[in-house]
Design a protein around this nucleic acid. Structure first.
Length: 111
DNA sequence: ACCGTGACGTGTC
DNA sequence: TGACACGCCACGG
């Protein structure tokens, strides 16, 4: 079980219509560095389907959009879930924000 | 083994 | 508030 798989598990656990941050995932998994989350998500295509579009930086900006097959995929998928994106930023980000500890405890994660 | 790089975050200026 | 520097950790050259 690599730490990357944990990152993917958390990412897959993000509720539809909500978003979280690299830092929140790193904090929940005690990785010590949010960069690891970005790095792992950059290679997520090799691990199957991961809703990486729901992970943004601490300001709610879609900083990872350029890593998708096309730069518009991330925004399109978010908007398809009801999340408004303006100027590459999630609208009402603080209200859309979801922290792993908010929900994973009831999903028996890591047990 | 050393150095640079990166889908990040926090602290300063 | 915005720009910059620095710390962070894994990976490739």
């Amino acid at each position: 079980m690599s730490y990357q798989e944990n990152i993917y598990k958390v990412t897959k656990a993000i509720p539809k219509g909500r978003v979280t941050t690299y830092g929140a995932i790193a904090d929940f998994l005690a990785l010590g560095s949010a960069r690891m989350v970005g790095w792992a998500l950059n290679n997520c295509h090799t691990f199957g389907d991961v809703p990486a579009h729901r992970v943004v930086n601490r300001k709610g900006e879609l900083t990872g959009r350029l890593q998708f097959p096309t730069p518009t995929i991330m925004q399109e998928r978010l908007e398809a879930e009801g999340i408004k994106v303006i100027k590459h930023k999630v609208v009402e980000f603080e209200d859309r924000f979801w922290h792993p500890s908010e929900d994973l405890k009831q999903k028996n994660f890591g047990a």
